[in-house]
Amino acid sequence: MADATKRETGLLKSSPVNVSKGLITIGSATVLLLIISGIFAPSSISPTSLSAMLPVASVLAIAGLGQMLVVQQGGIDLSVAGAMSLAVVIVTHVPDGNSGMLGPAVLLAIAFAIAAGIVNGLMIGGLGLNPIIATLGTNALLYGLNLAISGGRPRITTTLLASIGGGSTAGMPNAVFFALAALLLVAVFVKRTVAGRRFEVIGDNPRAARAMGLRVKLHQTSAYIWAQLLYCGAGILIAGITSQPIAYAGDTYLLPSVAVVVLGGTSLLGGRGFAIPTVIAAIFLQQLNQFVFSLGVSSAIQIIIQAAALAVGVSLYTVNWAAIWTALTRRTRAVTP
């Protein structure tokens, strides 16, 4: 098909910005949702509502970016919940209200995150364990640590963390800046570094990557470590935006973290990861919650709408609707000549 375009003489062009199908899909869905919100439930896009929605969306976005790196390599990470909860517990229980201890606590949380990532990575990338089982096991271990530290009790967050994570700058919640920083980090890593570019190729086709002599296992392992660092960041952020975060705070993010990755267009079978759409999907899901909540319908409807959004979102990528549409319209045309 491309043979028709004769371009032997000139250099092929490359545009600095590429718009993916995921970005168009989730981007337009989000814009549409905001418009609908504005018409039917104006309160759901009021500044108060947005400043409540955005920090939670930011946490989900950061966790989703971590999950995306893993999914890109054909994996899945169920230890999101345990990892985020552990980070929450470490940065609240270790300082115990003393802001001076926050720094060491954050370092400790990062150390645990790296360790958990190495454990996951070695089991999955190295030993070839199934990612579902391996991360399920790690999740239990992380919760064991969590309870050993916290005893399952919540503790009030430090004032320093509350002001950094929960504060606002120029009217925008700080959490949003952290999410943007995470997005920038992931996007630059994947698109602009040698390791990141190899990472993408390995995710798309590990067999081809192996035939090129790339270190497939090493990159697959690294995905789990990067992911843990992002979960850790997301967990610390929860501790910032919540005054007294519970010891199981990460649980509610497990399934949404997978959902935003899928909605962003990254295939659960591995392949290219779409960072920006993943972040937008996080905003979409949270705004959907706000909107339905503002309408005053029960949270049951809210959850069912989430499921429907996920089903529609996935089918946009897996089902060739255009072909089905053509087939259907052709049939009707044939029937009514």
């Binding site: 959902a259 899928v262 499921a307 996935v314 897996t318």
Partner: peptide, 19 residues
């Protein structure tokens, strides 16, 4: 629908919770 088993059953997971 060519969903991966995880995506398909995750959808039902969420929906059933809602129902």
């Amino acid at each position: 629908g060519k969903f991966t088993p995880i995506a398909a059953t995750l959808t039902l997971y969420i929906a059933l919770g809602g129902f």
